[in-house]
Amino acid sequence: MTSQTLASLDDTELSRYLEGSGLRFCVGPYTYALRSPLPIIRYGLARLYADHPLAANDGFADFHLSFRANGLLDFLRGHIHFQVDEQSPFAAIPKAQAYAFLEWGMNWCVSVTLHEYLKLHAAVVAKNGVAVVLPGLPGAGKSTLSAALALRGWRLLSDEHAMLEPGSNKLVPLPRPVSLKNDSIELIQAFEPSAIMGPVSEDTHKGSVAHLKADLASDSHDLARLPARFLVFPRYQAGAKLRLSPKGRAESFMFAAHHSFNYSLLGESGFDSMSRFIDNLECFDLHYGSIDQAHSAMESLLHGRYGA
């Protein structure tokens, strides 16, 4: 693909779009249109979305987002509203947290508005054309693990949404920066000093949040669907011994269903899609105490399967 990326815009052009008709860029199959007067948003986008394709200005955007101060009260408190479709569904936020909120809001749009895919709450990484789905409860370490894998040559398909084409085992890539919280920020910086991070937002409801540029593979923005082969439930525990153990399909089904954004909305067809999906997978629990351990376990998973 030779389409223009965000990196082709200099700072002046970037502000002109953001403060004017909106910056339109692609994330996997979706197009975002974003308006914002905030320097921190411009800085974060330039750093983390440099390789994302730009979309036509006169085309169709799936999601229209903007940051806007609503009146005097926002202005006096240094707050700003995050708008979706020109509506303000959320309370005002401090400007310093705007970047974390943008990333959160971009996820929110995907989670609640479209249902053409079965959407699971999971990170997705791939190597040699084989995708591994990493669901996880908050704190289980899925983001830290996928960040580390992205920095060691794996392709990151998604940080938050495993998007499954109904009735298949094909996943739709949705490459976005990886959201890192609190200790994970330093951990990843130490793991790979050259890692590119966006602005750090302090004191959000999740603590400190920063994002890692993770579209590092040459095919990061390729739109082709990838077959999923493994469902791995990571669980990080400081000092734990590595354990990669097979997990039951029914149990995995249940977990994935409970952590899906739209399994319930899709009704019986959601059940059918999940059944087909789980049948095509090998499921594992991965308990680990260090990123390096988990990395080597993930490599062995691929090699065990393909004998490379």
């Binding site: 029914a250 089904f253 409970h258």
Partner: peptide, 21 residues
């Protein structure tokens, strides 16, 4: 039913949309 001869199976109730293990 989603049953793969394991120690547990998934039971989906069509009317309520509830999924049980």
């Amino acid at each position: 039913f989603y049953d793969r001869s394991e120690s547990a199976f998934v039971y989906y109730q069509v009317d309520s949309g509830d999924t049980h293990l």
